[in-house]
Design a protein around this nucleic acid. Structure first.
Length: 574
DNA sequence: GCCGTTTTCGGCCCGACTGTTTTCAGTCG
């Protein structure tokens, strides 16, 4: 785990501790804000510290800068160690229980000496807990249920898993009489790579009845809350779903509000206040007068700026960009003309070349590249040179049979541990598309790994670096690589970097996409499909690219076939 | 504890739901 993440987690835990200790709430907010900025930072905090630029990180001032420095130098933060004595870590972890907040936890700690989950469960069973102020039978039951959910809790789920589920839900909710314009909000609408819970918004005049119908849908496992405008349920796979019902005249304001991100909303509201407006989920107001609320666009417009696409609402410069009229014109799924990274039965895929090509055609593409593995990927059925040329013959046959889709002959070639490629140059030069990827030796140190990848990028026949950091969401951290150097090398040698759309990869991530497009490196959005059905994951990659501010011009596979061929030929030594 | 299109000091987003209250506190997003 990177130092950025480690320090961010500590700052978050400090915030939790201060919350329980009832410290100044703005100080607590400062810690949370700093933690968020650190974890979303594209640059290595150690490098920033070396340059004495810590205080240039948003949310980091003199004090937190020193604490970061202390952690880098000594691997601990004294303030944090001191706090642990007053609010033990095991106790703080209990804040993860729904319905149990800092105030209640502090009370349980002080009055009943609750220090961990065991203590809490015992306290719940006893009678003493009912004597605490503000505590009743119902609340005890709530905490009990919270503990149950806490134990079974699913962590954040990858976007690619949640998206199809959410779409089913939205369609079901859309069938409830009186609803209209049912859509996703929250991190789902922003297409974050992982989703905590599913937020859905709908328009209706009779909220009470819609929420009631919602809580009675067949997939509901448990109802957490049910009111006149808002309902919360847990569905059978354990994911929480929140539905908000608003009236049509507030729909835009509510959609904006529930889409977030929180940081984006806070910044926008603060700006609104300074301009004499007030924004809430019902609209934008001056004094008591409601100026707008039906659409998101009106709200931005009254503030004097353009509508901001949800994918970049992270308070990462998009509000400033909007004020300056330089919002990016983000790439769209419909701009994509083909897929340049796919596998077939020839290696570890499940579909034939023809099936892949037909599916690509069905998606409206102009081309698809078939890029099976190279010999070193034994487990993945990597192709020997002989097999590779046999496959080429089949591709030629498919080309003759199929009209309306161009099939490119390619390979996903392993980058071996010394940075050389898994096929010799005279073989690579016969391929239309060469995607070079790391599939082994993930544990190398940063310098060795970076040198390895940089060397591969210097090969004159390589077009694309596949899944450049090797991370698997929720399973494997990225390998230790100096991504900035990789991006600079790609720029220098005219190579493209992949945004792998496979749901557990999304690699490059949004932060690195932004770095790449900022210096003019072309990205290519590919699916790495191992089945024809996986080609549809393209939308996840497009979303990731959009989150990284990529425009159509930044994306190689928005080029038409002829233009693409030109690019491929001019960017290698064929 | 941070930060400056009112400020280097004095602010820091806003409302719904629930339970335990009889006017509000805690929690959540």
């Amino acid at each position: 785990m990177s130092k950025n993440r480690e320090i961010a987690q500590i700052f978050d835990r400090i915030a939790d501790m201060l919350d329980i200790l009832e410290d100044n709430r703005f100080k607590i907010r400062a810690y949370r804000n700093a933690a968020r900025n650190l974890s979303e930072l594209g640059d290595d905090v150690e490098t920033i510290a070396e340059r004495s630029q810590l205080e240039e990180i948003p949310g980091i001032g003199k004090d937190l800068g020193l604490k970061i420095k202390e952690y880098i130098e000594t691997n601990k933060i004294t303030y944090y160690e001191e706090l642990k004595k007053k609010a033990p870590e095991e106790l703080v972890a209990l804040l993860g229980i729904q319905g149990l907040g800092p105030k209640t936890l502090a009370k349980l700690f002080k009055e009943l000496k609750v220090r961990n989950l065991d203590d809490l469960q015992k306290a719940i069973e006893g009678d003493e807990i009912l004597e605490l102020e503000g505590m009743g039978e119902k609340k005890v039951q709530d905490i009990k249920r919270g503990i149950q959910i806490f134990k079974e809790s699913v962590k954040r789920t990858p976007l690619g898993i949640v998206l199809p589920i959410a779409e089913t839900l939205i369609s079901e909710i859309g069938k409830i009489p009186g609803t209209e314009g049912t859509v996703a909000a929250g991190s789902l609408r922003r297409m974050r790579e992982t989703i905590g819970d599913i937020d859905i918004l709908t328009k209706a005049d009779d909220g009470q009845n819609v929420i009631k119908a919602f809580t009675e849908l067949p997939f509901v496992k448990e109802v957490l809350a049910s009111g006149g405008t808002k309902g919360s349920i847990i569905i059978k796979n354990g994911v929480q779903v929140d539905l908000r019902v608003v009236s049509p005249e507030s729909y835009g304001a509510a959609l904006h509000y529930f889409t977030g991100s929180k940081a984006h909303n806070v910044k926008l509201r603060t700006i609104a206040l300074k301009k004499g407006f007030k924004i809430n989920e019902y609209g934008i107001f001056r004094d008591q007068e409601k100026l707008a609320g039906e659409t998101e666009k009106e709200i931005y417009s009254i503030l004097g700026i353009d509508w901001i696409p949800p994918e970049i609402r992270e308070d990462k410069g998009e509000i400033e960009a909007s004020f300056e009229g330089r919002l990016p014109d983000l790439v769209e799924l419909s701009d994509i003309k083909g897929d340049l990274h796919t596998h077939t039965k020839w290696s570890d895929g499940k579909s034939s070349i023809e099936e892949m090509a037909l599916k690509a055609k069905e998606l409206g593409y102009e081309y698809i590249a078939i890029t099976d593995h190279s010999p070193s990927s034994r487990i993945a059925g990597g192709l020997s040179v002989e097999k590779l040329y046999e496959k080429k013959k089949e591709i030629e046959a498919v080309r003759k049979r199929l009209k309306g889709i161009k099939v490119l002959m390619g390979s996903e070639v392993d980058i071996k541990s010394d940075g050389s490629l898994d096929y010799p140059d005279e073989v690579l030069k016969d391929l239309d598309v060469v995607v070079a990827s790391v599939h082994s030796g993930f544990k190398m140190d940063r310098e060795t790994m970076t040198t390895r990848i940089v060397k591969a990028l210097q090969n004159p026949f390589v077009h694309v670096l596949g899944h450049p950091t090797g991370r698997l969401i929720g399973e494997r951290d990225p390998y230790d690589v100096d991504i900035d150097r990789v991006i600079r090398t790609a720029k220098e040698f005219g190579k493209s970097l992949e945004v792998n759309s496979f749901y557990s990869r999304l690699d490059l991530n949004n932060i690195n996409v932004k770095k790449a497009v900022d210096i003019g490196v072309k990205i290519v959005i590919s699916t790495d499909s191992h089945h024809a059905d996986n080609l549809g994951m393209m939308r996840l990659g497009v979303a990731t690219a959009r989150r990284g501010w990529a425009e159509k011009k930044d994306v190689l596979n928005t080029l038409g076939y002829d233009e693409l061929r030109k690019w491929l030929n001019s960017h290698s030594s064929r």
